[in-house]
Amino acid sequence: MRFARRFFSRPTALIGFALFAAIALVALLAPVIFARGPFSIVGMPLLPPGAPGLLAGSDVLGRDMAVGLAYGARISLLVGIASTLFAVGIGVLLGAVAGYYGGLVDDLLMRVTEFFQIIPSFVLLMVLVAFLQPSLGSTVIGIALVTWPQVARVVRGEFLSLRNREFVQAARTLGESDARIIFTQILPNALPPIVVVSSMMVGSAILTESALSFLGLGDPNLLSWGSMIGGARSAMWVAWWTTVLPGLSIMVTVLALNFIGDGLNDALNPRRRG
């Protein structure tokens, strides 16, 4: 509970959390509020926000922008969270093994990590998604594959310093197995930076997904904020709301996640306590 008090004592963390909670609520409730789905046409195209029954106006095909934004939040959050979970899974495993064992294992795993880091990640991602056929699954896997190296690096660094602590040596002299030492002794102590990095990664994954959808590499059967902007490119100059509203949604979501990340960093980092 002291953790929660430290976290919420920062106004930006509180704002970030409130914004994120609101967006998540909208995403969860979208199918309940807007049962007809984001693709159904409800009126004339390019009606401005505030037109009768259209809170956020309509897009180039006459679909309700508000419904699109609500459904888009589902995709953005789903892709952001799922790809981050995958990336953290891979990164923690490889980083922990590299950092704990060191030596040849570390050299080998770090070369693999660097291989992923030296390739322009967005180009690699486009190739991956195009190769796997654009779909929700391929987007999640693609983003996870290009983002795990940063988790691996953070985890490896933590393990490198923690594995020489005396409590880890003590665990070895007690006869605990390597897996047990990695997961019960070292990992809990390495969690704070992992949590902080992950919260930031959700935001950047949302940005990446939007960019992919904008380029038409998103799931064609789902409406996301990126594909809404992409689809409205031609109407940008006559109907500002078609691009600005999904753009703002992306910005607010990523900002909220960054606020949360900063708040977590301060609340979890013992050096900044007190």
Binding site: R165, E166, F167, Q169, A170, A171, Q185, P188, N189
Partner: peptide, 10 residues
Amino acid sequence: FQDPFSSLNP
């Protein structure tokens, strides 16, 4: 161990 602080898992 030597260090009473780092020898116990916090």
